[in-house]
């Protein structure tokens, strides 16, 4: 190998690399412009005292906003609610989703119709879902839930004001269960028939087969559902805005709703920006752990397939 060919090859490599990268750039630049740049601005705002009700109040205050929100009971309660709502919604809708998917994973009369019915809640406008749950479902006098539960003595419970978080979670679970169900159903249908037959030959019970064979096979799909579901549910705003307005008081406010309130009703740009930054840091810490797992699962299965 002569000394002159090495740089030439490096140049050729570099230009080929750029040709390869070119198709990626528009999407990358667009994403950076519309997500990263505003986020940098948020960090900038969070270091300043800026209340729209006090014009000319903009000044650099360092970490004062962070100090204020981290001792703010309302913020801490909203953080707790966010974790509570996200975790319970993802968990319950995943369990319901698995149950429904198992029921659907067999041939029976009207299977297509049942599947069509079951995916509908995921497609209905979430704003409408929230309003309908608040009124026609959970109303203490005329609501359907009260009617069904009245034999249990729960007929006249005012769910939305007595159990606001539970009510919000109920509407969210209804909305997200079909999403989980479809994912798990896809997973079930990718399972090899031979494995099931082998299990049957070995005389395993239905439950044993589910726990020992099907669940491990579904792991990747469950992880994907939990991750995607959590990403979307953490950001829930419309359901809370329509059902409880974060109330009574701030009992059911989550972080997105609290940040919205602070910015657009309290006009405190600095504090709401600081809350936004804290949410991002929290989300990234939790998600990084989850994402690493999923990444490993995904890329390793791709390598197996290749």
């Amino acid at each position: 190998m002569s000394t002159t060919t090495v740089p030439r090859r490096a140049v050729a490599d570099r230009s080929r690399n750029w040709r390869h990268r070119a198709p990626l750039l528009p999407a990358l630049v667009f994403t950076i412009l519309l997500t990263q740049l505003p986020f940098l601005a948020t960090i900038w705002y969070s270091l300043r005292s800026w209340n729209l009700l006090r014009p000319g109040s903009q000044e650099f205050t360092g970490l004062a906003n962070y100090a204020a929100i981290l001792t703010d009971a309302q913020f801490l309660a909203a953080a707790t609610n966010t974790v509570l709502i996200t975790a319970s919604c993802v968990l319950v809708s995943m369990m319901l989703g698995i149950g429904l998917a198992v029921l659907l994973d067999r041939r029976f009369v009207g299977r297509g119709v049942v599947r069509t019915l079951l995916i509908t809640p995921f497609l209905i406008l979430p704003v409408a879902t929230a309003l309908l749950w608040k009124t026609t479902m959970l109303d203490p006098v005329f609501g359907l839930v009260g009617f069904v539960l009245s034999p249990l003595g729960l007929g006249e419970v005012d769910w939305a004001s007595s159990y606001p978080v539970l009510s919000v979670v109920a509407a969210l679970v209804w909305q997200w269960t079909p999403f989980m169900m479809l994912l798990i159903l896809a997973g079930l249908q990718s399972q090899g028939r031979d494995v099931i037959e082998a299990g049957q030959v070995d005389g395993a019970s239905a439950w044993q087969m589910f726990a020992m064979i099907t669940l491990p096979h579904l792991r990747r799909y469950i992880e994907l559902g939990v991750l995607l579901g959590a990403i979307y549910v953490i950001n829930t705003f419309d359901t809370i805005y329509m059902m409880t307005q974060g109330g009574p008081g701030t009992a059911s406010a989550n972080l997105p709703f609290t940040i919205y309130q602070r910015a657009f009703l309290g006009f405190d740009v600095g504090q709401s920006a600081a809350m936004g930054v804290v949410v991002v840091i929290g989300t990234i810490i939790v998600a990084l752990l989850a994402l690493r797992l999923i990444f490993r699962a995904f890329l390793s299965s791709e390598e197996q397939n290749a």
Binding site: A41, T42, N235, L255, P256, A263, G276, V277, V279
Partner: peptide
Amino acid sequence: PVVAVIVP
């Protein structure tokens, strides 16, 4: 979260 970028 979209709430983190809505103000800017």
